[in-house]
């Protein structure tokens, strides 16, 4: 087995078992904020204990180890085919080791062959850059939170949502309302305003690669992020939808151009069991640095 293979298995193990520090800090703050003696506080305590236990035992934080999505930033001339093949082998081996659940089902036959390999599984997004380094980010996106994602096509009369930022605000908050606790809140929203149906969702997911406490460099989007975050946390949905103070841990929004006829707002919801990690790799495929 190559060094790249071993590095990717380790990336999968750590992503599945350990929550990134920025997410952990926001969860601890949410636990602190909940009223003592409520079922919301009890849920946050179980979440905190679960995070500690998963790390200590090197076992999945959540049994739904999700869709396996790699984001690879690589130099010109990087061998994408070998990377993809190696990633597939790493996913298969990580499944055997129990870092991933046997989680991939043939959509036509309903069969689960236990390998986690198949069309679109895993997914690998490549992006070239002009520097020599290779960065691999991994997201394990569970089905419960993926199912509460939503895509709105503006205008939506019923929600009084027009084709403007206020309309975007209304539909994003509607997504939070509809999700309630079903996506394992408190969660994080990744949102894309614009794009087409495919890129809208794709970019909304990529927003989840941002650090929780970072701020959006675009003033309008920053303002919208802060507004949605504050408003959502006044709704009282709370952890797991039990009622309580923290409904969202963060909101990340980007904008993409659209064609004049379309105005999509795409919302991806990430559960509290926010599994993302990343590594910088040496040319030989050795892990040099952890990115989160």
């Amino acid at each position: 087995m190559t060094m790249l293979h071993d590095s990717l298995v380790e990336l999968i193990r750590r992503t599945s078992a350990e929550i990134p520090d920025d997410v952990l800090q926001s969860i601890l703050a949410a636990l602190e904020a909940e009223k003592k003696g409520t079922i919301a506080e009890a849920a946050m305590k179980i979440i905190e204990k679960n995070i500690e236990l998963a790390k200590r035992k090197s076992q999945p934080i959540c049994q739904d180890t999700g869709s396996v999505i790699f984001y690879v930033d690589c130099p010109v001339g990087f061998d994408q085919i070998t990377f993809h093949e190696t990633a597939r082998e790493a996913v298969k081996d990580a499944t055997k080791k129990g870092f991933l659940r046997q989680n991939s089902v043939d959509s036509l036959t309903g069969k689960n062959d236990g390998t986690n390999l198949g069309p679109g599984a895993p997914t690998v997004h490549f992006h070239q850059h002009r520097t020599e380094d290779v960065q691999v980010r991994l997201m394990l996106k569970g089905g419960g939170c993926e199912n509460v994602g939503a895509q709105y096509s503006l205008p939506i009369e019923k929600l009084h949502a027009n084709r403007d930022l206020d309309g975007c605000r209304k539909v994003i908050l509607d997504a939070v309302l509809q999700a309630q606790g079903k996506g394992c809140g408190p969660g994080v929203l990744g949102v894309c305003i614009g794009g087409d149906r495919a890129t809208g969702y794709e970019f909304s997911k990529q927003q989840l690669l941002r650090l929780i406490p970072d701020r959006n460099p675009v003033p309008e989007l920053d303002k919208l992020e802060q507004d949605i975050f504050k408003t959502a946390n006044e709704l009282g949905i709370g952890p797991m939808g039990f009622g309580g103070k923290t409904t969202l841990l963060g909101v990340k929004i980007c904008a993409a151009n659209r064609v004049p006829a379309s105005f999509f707002v795409s919302v991806s919801y990430m559960c509290w069991a926010f599994r993302r990690q990343g590594v910088s790799l040496s040319p030989a495929g050795k892990i040099e640095k952890w990115l989160y």
């Binding site: 849920a43 179980i46 979440i47 204990k49 679960n50 236990l53 998963a54 035992k57 076992q59 999945p60 934080i61 959540c62 049994q63 569970g142 419960g144 606790g181 394992c184 797991m240 039990f242 559960c271 509290w272 069991a273």
Partner: peptide, 13 residues
Amino acid sequence: LHGVGGAAQVLAE
């Protein structure tokens, strides 16, 4: 009965 979603380790214990 509502369990805590995602708390796979606490519940596996």
